[in-house]
Computed example of a mutant assay.
Amino acid sequence: MSNPACGHRTTQTPVEEFETAESDRKRLTEKSFLLAEADDSSEVPDPDIEALQGLVEEVDRQGATYQSVAVAAVQILERALCYEREAAEAALSLGQQEKLEAMVATADQAASVLRDTLSAQGHKVMHLCTEQSPPEPERSRSSSDEPWWFVLSDALEVLEEGTDRMSTLTTGQPSGSSARRLSQTIAQLLQSHHDALLLEADDWIS
C-alpha cells in the first residue's frame, strides 16, 4: 500500500529528465558549497531518541498545544522517511547505504515515539489529514532506477521544508514550553539529517 505522505515525480520525457538532472546537480553543488563555508561551531547536534522519549514522558501529552505539535511532527517525519528510504535504496555504495539506513531508523523511531503519545483526537486529526492528502501519482520506475542526485535532491528538499516548518512551530511557542522543546528537538533532528545528506552530496560531487 502506498504511503500518502510520500509524493513522487510524474513520468518525464528524456529531455525533461536531462533538464531536471542538470538542475538537481547544480542545486547539490550550491548546497555543498554552503555547507563547506558554514562555521563548524554552528553544527546542530543529532538529537538522541532516548532524550526525546524522556521529553515526552515528562510533559503534559494531553494538552491541545502538545498534540498539535506532535501531529505536525509525525506528519513531517513520515514524509521525510519516504525520501530517506529512497535515498538509502539508491545509495552508491554499501557504506553509504548503511549510513542512510541508520538515519532512516532514527527518524522512524522518533515518529514512533511521537505517534504513541497521540490522543484519540490526535489520531483522528492524523486520519483526516491522510484522507485529505492528494492522491500519489504513479511512478514510472523505482527509486533504485533513478539517478542518485535525483533522489538525494528530493530528500534534501523535503528535509529542508520539514526543518523550516518545525522551526516556525518552535518560534510560535512560549519559551521553555513542552511544545517548543518538542518542535525544537524535531527541527534539530531533521536539520542533522539534512546536513548529513549534504555531506554525502559533497563527497559525490568532489
Rank of each mutant, 00 (worst) to 15 (best):
R165K: 15
T168K: 03
W149D: 11
L199I: 00
L159C: 08
A201M: 02
P134D: 07
F33L: 15
R79H: 12
T185K: 00
S42M: 09
P134W: 03
L198C: 09
P47T: 10
V158P: 01
P47V: 11
D24V: 13
Q67C: 05
I49E: 08
A21S: 15
P14Y: 04
D202M: 02
P45L: 04
L128S: 12
S144P: 02
R181T: 02
A87C: 12
V56E: 03
E98G: 00
T20M: 10
L55W: 03
S41H: 11
S23G: 13
A87I: 05
L118F: 08
I205R: 04
F18P: 02
R27T: 13
Q96F: 09
E58G: 14
V74A: 07
S167M: 09
E58W: 02
A87E: 12
S144Y: 11
L35Q: 12
L94E: 14
V59M: 13
P47H: 11
T20E: 12
R141W: 01
I49A: 11
L94I: 14
I76N: 11
G122H: 03
H127T: 15
D60H: 09
T171K: 03
V158F: 03
V158G: 03
A21L: 15
L114V: 10
D46C: 13
R85K: 11
T13A: 08
E16C: 01
E138P: 02
R27D: 14
R25H: 11
V71M: 04
T11V: 13
P4I: 07
C129E: 15
G95V: 10
K26R: 15
A70M: 07
V113W: 02
W204Y: 10
A51Y: 03
A110P: 02
T185Q: 05
L159Q: 04
G162F: 03
G162N: 07
P134T: 08
A80D: 09
W149P: 05
Q12V: 05
L81P: 05
A107D: 03
K124V: 05
P47G: 08
G7Q: 13
Q191L: 00
S112Y: 06
A155Q: 06
G176N: 05
T13K: 04
T106R: 13
A187G: 00
T130A: 15
A72E: 14
G54R: 10
A187Y: 01
A90G: 05
V56M: 05
T10I: 13
L128H: 12
E160I: 01
L197Q: 01
E131M: 14
A51D: 12
G172V: 00
D164Q: 14
A196T: 05
H8Y: 13
W149V: 09
H194W: 01
T20L: 13
M126D: 10
A107R: 07
P174D: 02
D108K: 06
A21W: 15
G54L: 12
G7K: 09
D39K: 12
Q184I: 00
V74G: 04
H127G: 09
E131A: 11
